[in-house]
């Protein structure tokens, strides 16, 4: 697999917009032009060549080494191929991604996978708030794809998502799945307060909820075939990183009954 590597040579003095560093975009321009690309966020005009040493051949992958939380919008509009980021990332990593695979070996800022419609984001560390969420002007948050987070996630995960799966191996913050229209959010260590506020459809899975909204109705314990399919899907998509298969029986809470109530919170604890 060929590709370019961007190695940080000097710490940037400002936040960077690295939305252009996807495999298909960097492969479409000559190296000289690429090095002159403005990635700064101020009037200083910071260029790729000022802060990165670039090596390798353009291809279907991009590697960014020395990434920090000031590197924003990495993997924006990624359609195919893969990106590996060594270090933390800032705001909006994987924004509007449509395919391919973005692997971040560090923590992520807010809005990880915002507007994602396809592909996979693998985060080794923890994520900030609004994972898979939406920004002003968006009708929905994530509409497809998979986000897997090895650490914890902040508040408002999966706000107004419509499709796709968010998996969090650690804890999930408050207000997960608010205004959700579909999709799945699965945390291994539990949701914070009031998940699923005003959700219409979709599935929230956790061993526990810190504070359940009163507009969710206890529907009892059930053995759901769809959870077997979900476990198998995660195993095939994530391989060794996949979570343990869900238990046979879960307790279902139907809601949010303040809306059409076709969503569900599934508690996996016995």
């Amino acid at each position: 697999m060929s590709g370019l590597t961007f190695r940080l040579t000097s710490a940037p003095s400002e936040r960077l917009d690295l939305s252009h560093l996807t495999p298909h975009k960097v492969a479409s321009m000559p190296l000289a032009e690429l090095l002159k690309l403005n990635v700064g966020s101020t009037k200083n005009g910071l260029k790729i060549g000022d802060i990165f040493a670039v090596s390798g051949q353009p291809g279907d992958s991009v590697r960014i080494e020395g990434s920090t939380s000031r590197f924003d919008f990495i993997g924006t509009d990624l359609k195919h191929g893969s990106m590996i980021v060594e270090g933390d990332v800032g705001v909006g990593a994987g924004r509007s991604m449509r395919g391919g695979r973005l692997e971040i070996r560090g923590d992520a800022g807010t809005l990880l996978g915002s507007g994602l419609s396809g592909g996979e984001i693998l985060l080794k560390g923890s994520a900030g708030s609004q994972v898979g969420g939406l920004t002003p002007g968006d009708r929905f948050g994530m509409t497809g794809g998979l986000i897997a987070i090895e650490g914890d996630a902040g508040d408002r995960v999966g706000e107004r998502i419509r499709r796709g799966t968010i998996y969090i191996r650690g804890k999930c913050g408050d207000y997960a799945g608010a205004r959700m229209v579909g999709g799945t959010i699965w945390t291994e260590l539990g949701f914070g307060a009031e998940p699923g506020m005003l959700m219409r459809r979709g599935t929230l899975i956790a061993p526990s909820v810190a504070r359940m909204l009163p507009t969710f109705a206890d529907a009892g314990r059930h053995d759901l075939v769809i959870l077997r399919i979900l476990s198998r899907y995660m195993a095939s998509a994530l391989g060794a990183l996949a979570p343990r298969a869900l238990p046979g029986t879960v307790r279902k809470y139907a809601g949010d009954l303040a809306t059409i109530g076709k969503g569900e919170i599934l508690l996996t604890a016995p």
Partner: peptide, 13 residues
């Protein structure tokens, strides 16, 4: 009934 899309497959419940 509700639908669940996982990857490129869609299932009805």
């Amino acid at each position: 009934q509700t639908a669940k899309r996982l990857g490129n497959r869609r299932f009805w419940r």
